Amino acid sequence: MSAIMHTAENTTIAASVETGKSESVMKNAAASATVVEKPKFKGSKFSLRPFFLAVLPPIFGLIFLILVWEIISVKNSGIPSPAVTLKSAMELFADPFYSNGPNDQGIGWNILASLQRVGVGFGLAALVGIPLGFMIGRFKFLSGMFNPIISLLKPVSPLAWLPIGLLVFKAADPAAIWSIFICSIWPMIINTAVGVQRVPQDYMNVAKVLNLSEWKIVTKILFPSVLPYMLTGVRLAIGTAWLVIVAAEMLTGGVGIGFWVWDEWNNLNVAHIIIAIVVIGIVGLVLEQILVGIARIFTYEDVKN
C-alpha cells in the first residue's frame, strides 16, 4: 500500500513538474509573441534615398555641363570660361533695368519686351485657335474643310511669315507678334480638335436623349473632356512662341532679348550671348512650369502624370 502511495506521489510530482514546464514554455512563447507582434508605425524608417535621387542627378548634370564648357573654353580661346561668364553675369544683373536710350537698355527691359510680344501673339492665337479647334472637332464638314489647310500651312517655318507681316503691318513690332500668332495657333487647333473627336460617343448620345442645347453640350460635356488636350496644346504653343520671338527679334530689331543677343554678337561680347542663352532657357522653363501647374489644377489625376 505504501508503495502504491509512493508511486502516486511521484506521479503527482512529475505531473507538477511537467505542468510547470508547460506554463514556463507558454509564458516564453507569449513573451516571444509579444516581442514579435510589436506595432509597426508607418514612417518609422527614414530614408534619404528619394531625396538623393531627386537632387543628385540634376547636380551631376550641371557639373558635367560646366566641365564640358570648361574644356571647350580651354581648347577655344574665343569661348569664355564659366568663371568669366559668371563674373559678367553678376555685373550684368547688378543693374538689369538701366536705360541709356532706345538702343541701350538693360537685359531686364529686353526680357519684358519679349514677354509682352509673346503674351499678345499667344493670347490672340488662343482666342482664335481654341474655338476653331472646337468647331473643327465637332463638325465633320469643318474638319474636312480645314484639315488640308492646316496640313499645308503647319510645316511652314514661322520666320517665313515674318516678311508677310512686315508687308502687311509696315512695322517690326506687329510683324513679330504676327509670327508668334501664326506659329502658336496650330498646336491649339490640332490638340483641341483631337480632344473633341475623342469624347466618348456615349456622352453625345446622352446629350441627344436629354435634348441638350449646343451651348450646354460644349460647356457641360465637351469642355471638361477636352481640357487636358487643350492645355497640352497651350503648353506646346507657348514653347514654340518663346522660340520664335528670339529669332524674329534678331531680324526686326528694337528692344527684345533676340535683338539684345544680336547686338552683343556685333559687339563680340560672347559672355553676354551665353548669359542670354541661359536666361532664355530659364524663362522658357518658368513659362512651361506655370502652364504645367495650371494643367494639374484643372485636370484629372490620371492626366497629371
Rank of each mutant, 00 (worst) to 15 (best):
A3D: 13
N10G: 09
T12I: 09
I13M: 00
I13L: 02
I13T: 13
A15T: 04
S16F: 02
S16M: 05
V17P: 01
T19L: 10
T19N: 13
T19R: 12
K21M: 07
K21F: 13
S22Y: 04
E23G: 02
V25M: 14
A29R: 15
T34R: 15
P39W: 08
S44R: 12
K45A: 13
R49C: 00
P50Y: 02
L56F: 14
L56T: 12
P58D: 09
I59F: 15
F60K: 08
L62K: 06
W69P: 03
I71F: 14
V74E: 11
N76G: 01
N76S: 06
S77K: 13
G78D: 14
G78M: 12
G78K: 11
P80A: 12
P80W: 11
P80Q: 13
P82D: 02
A83T: 13
A83P: 02
S88A: 15
M90L: 15
L92M: 10
A94L: 14
F97S: 13
S99A: 07
N100H: 05
P102V: 06
D104Y: 02
Q105F: 03
Q105D: 05
G106K: 01
G106Y: 06
G108H: 06
L115F: 04
G121T: 07
G123C: 10
L124W: 08
A125Q: 03
L127G: 09
L127P: 08
G133R: 12
G133H: 03
I136G: 07
G137F: 01
R138H: 05
L142P: 05
G144L: 12
M145D: 05
N147G: 08
I149C: 09
I150R: 15
S151Q: 15
K154D: 09
V156M: 15
S157V: 09
P158Y: 03
L159H: 00
I164K: 06
L167V: 05
F169D: 12
A171C: 05
I177C: 00
I177D: 04
W178M: 11
F181G: 00
S184D: 09
W186Q: 06
I189H: 09
I189A: 01
V196D: 11
D202A: 15
A207H: 08
A207G: 10
K208T: 09
V209K: 01
V209A: 08
L212F: 05
S213F: 02
W215Q: 09
K216H: 15
K216S: 15
I217E: 00
I217R: 00
F223N: 11
P224W: 10
S225R: 05
T232Y: 07
V234I: 03
L236W: 02
L236G: 07
T240Y: 05
W242E: 04
V246K: 06
V246W: 06
V246Y: 10
G256C: 08
F259S: 07
F259E: 01
W262T: 08
D263V: 04
W265H: 01
N267F: 13
N269Y: 07
A271E: 15
H272T: 01
I273Q: 11
I277S: 08
V279P: 12
V279K: 04
I280L: 07
G281P: 06
E288I: 03
E288Y: 12
Q289L: 12
V292T: 10
G293E: 00
I294A: 04
R296V: 05
I297T: 06
F298H: 12
E301G: 02
V303I: 10
